[in-house]
Write a protein that binds this DNA or RNA. Structure first.
Length: 262
DNA sequence: CGTGGACCTGCTGGA
DNA sequence: TCAACCAGGTCCACT
């Protein structure tokens, strides 16, 4: 079984925060297991920590990347990116880890975001065999939430804890959010603490299967203005993208984001 | 609804 | 070394 998948692009483009490359090995934590992967010509080899089901789910192997390329290549810019970053796939993250991580990722640069998340994992998460730490559950977090003060989250602390509380009390139904229309999903997410338009779109896209979501952060904002002359409010720019790229808008976003970060 | 400020804090690009 | 018109926004106030 071969799969079009480039680990460097997929795990290094910025959609996930905790994967690290050591030598030719990508190391991360998926579903509470320390995972190790290695790039092969026809896909990725699982060294440890993932079974086929987990792998297929995580790397969205059902998404036909060639089909995405075909349907979006009417756009010359994307056509170029597809050639250069061939094999970059969207990942299906764990919903709780995804909302929590992106709620922390506001108004901070990537190194700091990674630092905050790492400290949260080390402070509250379960230690794995290889010495790494899993992302903590809402319960683990709430159990000793005063320790969050030592994680350097700044003003995000209260929002973060409150978010954990809501998820723990099952006030957030990820399964329902996944089933409803993208617009409804985004509207509900924005009502949660620490979540605005941008984070809501990241969550919709990266863990709730709403592939038409088009998160607009500062980098994408500049890119869209430069590439398409699309400017204005958040709603304006993201709507422009969804109209142009349709149900694959999320894939378009990820390639543009990656291209503009290099 | 859209826009302007304030906002924790520290990684790291530029004085 | 050091500051910070910075950094993958959000929230609140107000037109």
């Amino acid at each position: 079984m071969s799969l079009l998948l480039n680990l460097d692009h997929t795990l290094g483009c910025g959609q996930v925060f905790r994967w690290r490359k050591e030598g030719d090995l990508w190391k991360g934590v998926v579903d509470g297991h320390a995972a190790k992967l290695r790039q092969k010509a026809d896909g990725a080899q699982v060294i440890s920590g993932m079974d086929q089901t987990s792998f297929d789910r995580y790397f969205r192997t059902d998404d036909e990347l060639e089909k995405v390329y075909r349907e979006l290549s009417f756009d010359p810019v994307l056509g170029d990116y597809f050639t250069r970053y061939r094999g970059l796939r969207l990942i299906r993250q764990d919903p709780w880890e995804c909302v929590a991580s992106y709620a922390l990722a506001t108004n901070a640069n990537i190194p700091r975001i990674q630092g905050m998340i790492e400290r949260v994992c080390r402070t509250f998460g379960t230690e794995m065999d290889d010495g790494s730490y899993a992302f903590p559950s809402p319960e683990q977090l709430l159990d000793r939430c005063h320790r969050a003060d030592g994680c350097g989250l700044g003003y995000r602390t209260d929002r973060f804890i409150e978010l954990a509380r809501l998820v723990h009390r099952e006030k957030v139904d990820f399964s329902a959010l996944m089933d409803m229309e993208y617009m409804d999903c985004a509207r509900e997410l924005v009502a949660l603490p620490g979540i605005g338009n941008k984070v809501a779109d990241c969550v919709a896209l990266f863990c709730l299967d709403h592939l038409e979501a088009f998160p607009v952060d500062i980098r994408i904002k500049k890119a869209m203005a430069q590439l398409y002359g699309a400017e204005g409010s958040y709603r304006k720019v993201s709507a422009f993208a969804r109209e142009r790229f349709g149900h694959w808008a999320g894939y378009a976003q990820e390639y543009i984001f990656y291209a503009f970060g290099r």
